[in-house]
């Protein structure tokens, strides 16, 4: 089933192979980074990254970078 979510304020069509938050981070090449993930207004603990992503979920991801 096609899932469309809101990712960091933008409409985002979920790739079929991405089922949960961990897989989304991998798809976005953020799996190796330090990230804070908010899903439907709740911050997710790392052990909740296996939560499935559903149609119309709102996800915000902030990753840490070094530069300045």
């Amino acid at each position: 089933m096609k899932r469309t979510i809101e990712l960091n304020g933008n409409r985002y069509d979920m790739p079929a192979e991405v089922g949960n938050v961990q897989e989304l981070l991998g798809h976005l090449e953020l799996a190796e980074r330090i990230v804070i993930v908010e899903m439907n207004r709740d911050i997710l603990a790392k052990d909740a990254y296996d939560l499935p992503i559903n149609d119309r979920d709102q996800i915000e991801i902030i990753h840490f970078v070094g530069g300045g």
Binding site: L7, N8, G9, N10, I36, E38, I43, E60, I61, I62, H63
Partner: peptide, 20 residues
């Protein structure tokens, strides 16, 4: 708040991290 912006993609996020 912890906030981010990407000026190329238009992505933006604003997370209230008080619970952390």
């Amino acid at each position: 708040k912890l906030e981010s912006a990407d000026l190329w993609t238009g992505d933006r996020a604003s997370i209230g991290v008080a619970s952390m």
